[in-house]
Write a protein that binds this DNA or RNA. Structure first.
Lengths: 194, 194
DNA sequence: AAAAAAAGAATGAACGTTCATTTTTACTGT
DNA sequence: ACAGTAAAAATGAACGTTCATTCTTTTTTT
């Protein structure tokens, strides 16, 4: 158990180092040797935990994505009314991107890059189910526009990634006011306007 | 002039090859040798046109970004009413992402990655001026929400990148209907709703 | 025939990965 | 409780490859 804990710690350190280095330098400029050094581990040790570099990045992606969605849905309940449910999920996602922006940035980078292989990408999408279910319900009740989930996602959720990246590069701060404005824009873009 | 033309052709071939390879394999997996081969040129020749790999990618980015914004604003006039102006620009951008999606994908990848250095990134942003000017006018006239340009961009323009990437990975097609729905969502998210 | 452009082969550094060895852990019989 | 030991985990050094870049030569242009 002490041993097991140690192993988990080491694995986590490797994943954390991967995220940090890829965020700052990009995949192409983060060698295994640097990851090892940052995780305070020998390069060879990485291969006890991961098959190779691609596997390390894939697993990092899947793990971060799982943490992200777990956080997003933690306070949502299936019996919430549609608008309340959406607000709950949206604000959790926004919160994650603010407070855990190392992880959120890593995901944003992965999502527009051939860095991750296709199976891992698919794996990452799975956990979004509750949001799609909420939207289906909202469409049935005439509250949410009857349009493709891709469109809903593009307008309701994805802008947060852009805002987070902008905030990261400074020149824009995601404070309480901006957050509320962003939420209004998100909700207005997907709700049915009478 | 024949010579000059030839040089331009070669430079363009290199830039095109860079885009194609980076799109398909990512920066980390596109060696200079492959770029040279695809452009039908010796690796050494690349260095007659570009300082090094970083310079090649930076210049590719700047060039594509310039083409993108030129296309976006080509049919827009400063004396257009705000809503018409926005629709004009928005539809041109959408059009670009559809018909020139090789280039658009390359930009999307660059924008979330430390692949491009900061000066080049700044250079790329410059050409967005007319859109910001339009928004300033819209705010003054009470047509567009008085919120940060970052928020406006995040909701009005950025979703197109996500939609294009989704379309590229299949499972979603950006047809005329979807386009119109996307435009409604974009406009609703930034306009003042009475 | 001189200059410019392009080429292929060569170079040295850096990389991902593996190897041989050492260190740590878990378990045994006393 | 403990010494002894086999297995597991971890290491630093080494390997083979690949890469960006440069060098020398050839080809093309003027």
């Amino acid at each position: 158990m002490a041993t097991l804990q140690k192993s988990i710690d080491k694995r986590n350190a490797l994943i954390k180092a991967t995220i940090e280095l890829v965020n700052n330098n990009g995949f192409h400029a983060t060698p295994m040797s640097k990851i090892a050094k940052m995780a305070k581990v020998s390069p060879a040790t990485i291969y006890l935990y991961f098959e190779n570099k691609q596997d390390l990045v894939n697993q990092t992606y899947i793990e971060v994505k799982a943490a992200y969605t777990a956080y997003a849905f933690a306070t949502y309940h299936l019996n919430m009314p549609v608008e309340e449910g959406f607000e709950t999920i949206w604000k959790r996602i926004a919160d994650f991107k603010l407070k855990d922006c190392e992880n959120a940035m890593f995901l944003a980078q992965c999502d527009n890059t051939p860095m991750i292989d296709e199976p891992s990408r698919q794996e990452g999408i799975k956990h979004l189910e509750p949001l799609l279910e909420l939207w289906a319900r909202g469409k049935k009740e005439g509250i949410i526009k009857p349009i493709s989930d891709y469109l809903l996602y593009a307008y309701a959720i994805n802008p947060l990634s852009f805002l987070m990246m902008s905030a990261q590069r400074s020149a824009f701060t995601l404070d309480k006011t901006h957050m509320e404005e962003a939420y209004r824009a998100a909700w207005n873009s997907i709700r049915v306007i009478k």
